[in-house]
Amino acid sequence: MTTSPSLTTPSARLGAGTPRLSLNRWSLRTTPLQEFLEATTARGIDAVGLWRQDIAEVGLDALRRRVDDAGLRVSSLCRGGFLTASVEADRAEALADNRRAIDETAALGAPTLVMVVGGITQEDKDLAAARARVTESIAMLAPYAKSAGVTLALEPMHPMFAADRAVLSTLGQALDVAEASGSDAVGVIVDTYHVWWDPALEQSIARAGAGGRLLSYQVCDWNLPLAADPLFSRGYMGDGFIDFPSITRMVTAAGYTGDIEVEIFNEDVWATPADESAKIIAERFEQLVLPHA
């Protein structure tokens, strides 16, 4: 692992704004990076979830400096994963890219790398084999992540994304992979958009907490009608169908005390001025999530 010596100490600003709230970069995806950081701090939010696209835009060292200068922490980096390739050369390339993502997560002082594990192809429709390759690859990456002080947070995604994004559809499936790694550096994300429908959700959240594998909690709503690209149907909390108080109480009962990221992909939200979106997000968080956290 290689990191810049000047970027090894995590940002330390804690508790000065809305408690527990982290604003994911893609909630304001079309807002320029510096404006996003300024809108975050202006609303009294202490932490941000960043994406590797931000690193590509300004460079790793410059991104860390901007975050530090804003007095912010990085709650997670998105994303690693896409580990389902059946061709050996493609798989090796994916593992190498994930090691780079782990290095970047450590350099930003973030505790967690979000892992979107990947889907299948029309040529290879073997879902069980794809899941097996994910399990094997995560076990291979876990020691590297642990040595870097980074956790790998597996993100189960709604089953409609199984073909192209994530062959792990339930929290239980993600926990199976995390436990099979044999490493405490691997855990799971509870993302309300993807898991709210799961009839085993409460039991799986409790299992994640008991095993020390509940690494991140992300919130946004499930809006209808679904957008042409369902990925963009995530909405402000309270605009859709998700019971945030109930799920938040499950996560709290499981012992989770970390940052809670608001991650919204929605073209109408992106078209809203950044300061207005950040205001709505903070207000909805304080109304629907924070009282139960």
Rank of each mutant, 00 (worst) to 15 (best):
M1P: 02
M1N: 07
T2F: 07
S4M: 09
T8I: 13
S11I: 08
A16K: 15
T18W: 03
R25W: 04
W26P: 03
L28E: 03
L28S: 06
T30K: 15
T30F: 06
T31W: 11
E35W: 06
L37P: 08
E38H: 14
D46V: 13
A47S: 14
D54Q: 08
A56S: 12
L60I: 12
D61F: 01
D61T: 10
A62F: 08
L63F: 04
R64D: 01
R64F: 00
R66F: 02
A70D: 14
G71H: 03
G71R: 04
L72A: 08
L72N: 11
V74I: 12
L77N: 09
L77H: 08
L77V: 15
R79Q: 12
G80H: 11
G80R: 09
F82D: 10
F82M: 14
A85Q: 15
A85P: 10
A89G: 12
A89F: 10
D90Y: 07
E93N: 13
A94Y: 12
A94W: 13
D97L: 14
D97S: 15
A101L: 10
D103L: 10
D103P: 11
E104D: 14
T105P: 10
A107V: 06
A110I: 07
P111C: 09
P111S: 09
L113A: 03
V114C: 11
V116C: 13
V117R: 01
G119A: 02
I120M: 06
Q122A: 09
D124P: 01
A130Q: 02
V134W: 11
T135E: 02
T135A: 13
E136H: 06
S137A: 15
L141N: 05
L141R: 04
A142Q: 05
A142N: 05
A142G: 07
A148H: 08
E155K: 04
P159W: 00
P159H: 02
R165T: 02
A166M: 11
V167N: 02
L168M: 10
L168P: 02
S169R: 03
L171F: 00
L171V: 12
A174H: 07
L175Q: 03
L175D: 08
A178H: 04
A180V: 07
A180C: 12
S183E: 06
S183I: 13
A185I: 07
V186F: 04
G187W: 01
Y193M: 10
V195S: 03
Q203G: 13
S204Q: 12
I205V: 15
R207P: 05
G212K: 05
L214K: 11
S216D: 01
Y217F: 15
D221G: 12
N223D: 05
N223V: 15
P225H: 12
L226K: 14
L226Y: 04
A228C: 09
R234K: 15
G235H: 06
Y236M: 15
D239R: 14
G240C: 10
G240K: 10
E263G: 10
I264N: 05
N266M: 07
N266F: 10
W270D: 00
W270R: 14
A271E: 01
A274D: 01
S277V: 11
R284L: 08
R284D: 00
F285R: 14
F285W: 05
E286C: 01
Q287I: 00
L288P: 02
V289A: 00
P291I: 00
H292Y: 07
